[in-house]
Write a protein that binds this DNA or RNA. Structure first.
Lengths: 336, 336
DNA sequence: GTTGGCACTCGAGTCTACCGAGTGCCAGAC
DNA sequence: GTCTGGCACTCGGTAGACTCGAGTGCCAAC
């Protein structure tokens, strides 16, 4: 890495990033030179700015304009960021939220995405923990129509999965009862992901239905069945002024699998922030995302939360918000 | 009503609306005079335009510009609209969609909102049928943690509702089993909305838990528990050029109860189209909505579908799309 | 009642000039 | 050497002048 910048360059770069995040205007040497941590003249700053531009940390929209950070510039800034504490008002807001948060997991995650969005004034995403790691607490098959039944399973993390079964012939309610009992006996307590082949019972119809049901269950509990809760997408409209950018960003957010794989990818690479082109998604090239995992302690699998904003987002605030919310969510899930 | 327009005025108004919907530009007398159904000179058209403006059907953005329809102008246009047939390509698209649509109700409704959005290139909303009218097919209480249980109910329309129960003391699994049986015996087959007070069993704990559970169920199956599926919200970004409008519209769409009550309100007033200020929602003042009910035949309650676009939306297309999709959805739900 | 003609209006686009924030570079000071 | 003040230069943005053209309202004539 050539990101060995001397102290002064680092201070100047940080100043430019901070100023640009605040004003959204290209930053000139004069604005930086005034600062207490940059005790040199604007001429010196200009020389340094030129050097920083040559090294790829800054760009000039055009000659005789100020500088704007590149993705690389933001990256340098974020990497040196010591996590500042969240401001007390926001802290209080989080505390109150989790004091009141009760009831269904899904509802809470949805509300959490709203909370995060409100705290940061960017869009927020909460991905539920995958159901793979959870164990089955209950399995039941319910008849809906003569040739239609529904498998309903309750998992240890409180989520409920269901899948309809289209039956080739009519099945008597008693047989569905026997099926439910058979499935319960062999599946309850097992990890949801590995659906075993059930032992034959001698009853051909029962065995066939059991096969259908286990197949259906592994369909709905397998990977790629995370739920995505998106909050505050409308705030992306204020984050960009080009209406085209807004549309492409919102379009990308509508595709849940894009969001899920983005967050997963970032975490897999050991990052907590991905800026602009660092993640490969073209429609989100002007966005940065701040992510954190949550859960996983109780063996129930990890979920992810994230904040999505423009690359010139308020990183300290976003990092602090994501950190504190993920911690609280952790604690909450451990309590059950 | 003063909307007694003679034939020529009506034809001119229709021409202006059509032209404006197509071009998004103020329409001048010259463009209208050329048409086959307006066989008069532009001077005559000008006189009529001035009259239409005085009666409130049109406005002029500024002197010496063409005319733009008002909400009242669109209303007149829509009321005289004879429902044209959907173009064959879209018809085919719908057919294919419903041929493939299988599985869960929720998934299908979500996909339907995407379909509608794609057909019209506006945002689309699907509100699930309320669970009030459905009957209970199964009730079960499952233990999640020592002091936490989950009531899970399956309804006749295939939806599954759940509600967590926070218990004051630890309850043995056998007792939850007894509770499930007790609830099943008295609730299965009943309409979800009217939860009765269960007869006393002599077991004080059981009765107390049963009370908790029925209360929880009426909580989740009562009114205001419709699910809302929103598709293609990002398309609203292209519908307006003011970024502020986009943000306020998207913000309104994020609040589900706003959407639900908007659609319900429109249907209650016997309308299938609400334009601009006709519905009272300020953030959606520049939007029009085309709605239709679906379902309700099997006694399972009516749901609603709708298309939301700018007031200058393509009404014939939207009306046709909404009509055909709601019909198909109807048929689909009757099949089960 | 309808029409062609005409004077008028006003937004949009083009061109110009100007201002000012910002740059790069250089010569001199520390 | 490194920093700094000075200076010439660049270039986007704004404001004013001008033109163009689509559109209007009105009136006299058919």
């Amino acid at each position: 890495m050539d990101s060995e910048l001397d102290d002064r360059k680092a201070a100047i770069l940080r100043a430019v990033v901070e100023e640009y995040i605040e004003t959204a205007q290209p930053v000139g040497s004069g604005h930086v030179a005034g600062r207490p941590d940059v005790p040199v003249s604007s001429a010196t700053v200009r020389n340094e700015l030129a050097a920083l531009e040559k090294e790829g940390f800054l760009v000039q929209p055009h000659t005789s304009a100020g500088r704007i950070p590149t993705d690389k510039g933001y990256r340098f800034f974020v990497d040196r960021l010591q996590a500042g504490p969240l401001d007390p008002a926001a802290r209080q807001q989080v505390r109150e939220f989790f004091a009141k948060a009760h009831g269904e997991l899904e509802q809470m995650l949805q509300d959490t995405s709203r909370l995060l969005s409100q705290m940061t004034s960017y869009a927020a995403v909460v991905v539920s923990p995958p159901t793979e790691a959870a164990s089955l607490r209950s399995v039941q098959v319910v008849s809906l129509a003569p040739k239609l039944a529904l498998v309903v399973a309750v998992l240890s993390n409180g989520s409920v999965v269901k899948h309809s079964l289209e039956l080739a012939e009519e099945v008597a309610p008693e047989q569905l009862g026997a099926l439910s009992a058979h499935l319960s006996a062999h599946l309850v307590g097992r990890v949801a992901l590995d659906m075993p082949v059930l032992p034959a019972t001698g009853d051909e119809l029962l065995d066939r239905l059991a096969g259908l049901a286990t197949h259906a269950l592994s369909d709905t509990t397998g990977p790629d069945h995370e739920q995505v809760f998106l909050g505050g997408a409308s705030r992306m409209a204020s984050a960009f002024d080009a209406v085209d950018t807004v549309r492409s960003v919102l379009g990308a957010l509508e595709q849940q699998y894009v969001v899920v794989s983005l967050l997963r990818d970032v975490l897999d690479r050991g990052l907590s922030v991905a800026i602009g082109h660092e993640h490969g998604l073209l429609p989100l090239a002007e966005c940065a995302v701040v992510v954190a995992p949550y859960g996983g302690a109780g063996g129930d699998g990890q979920g992810t939360i994230g904040v999505l904003g423009p690359t010139r987002m308020n990183y300290p605030q976003a990092l602090a918000a994501v950190a504190v919310v993920s911690q609280r969510l952790d604690r909450r899930l451990e309590e059950g």
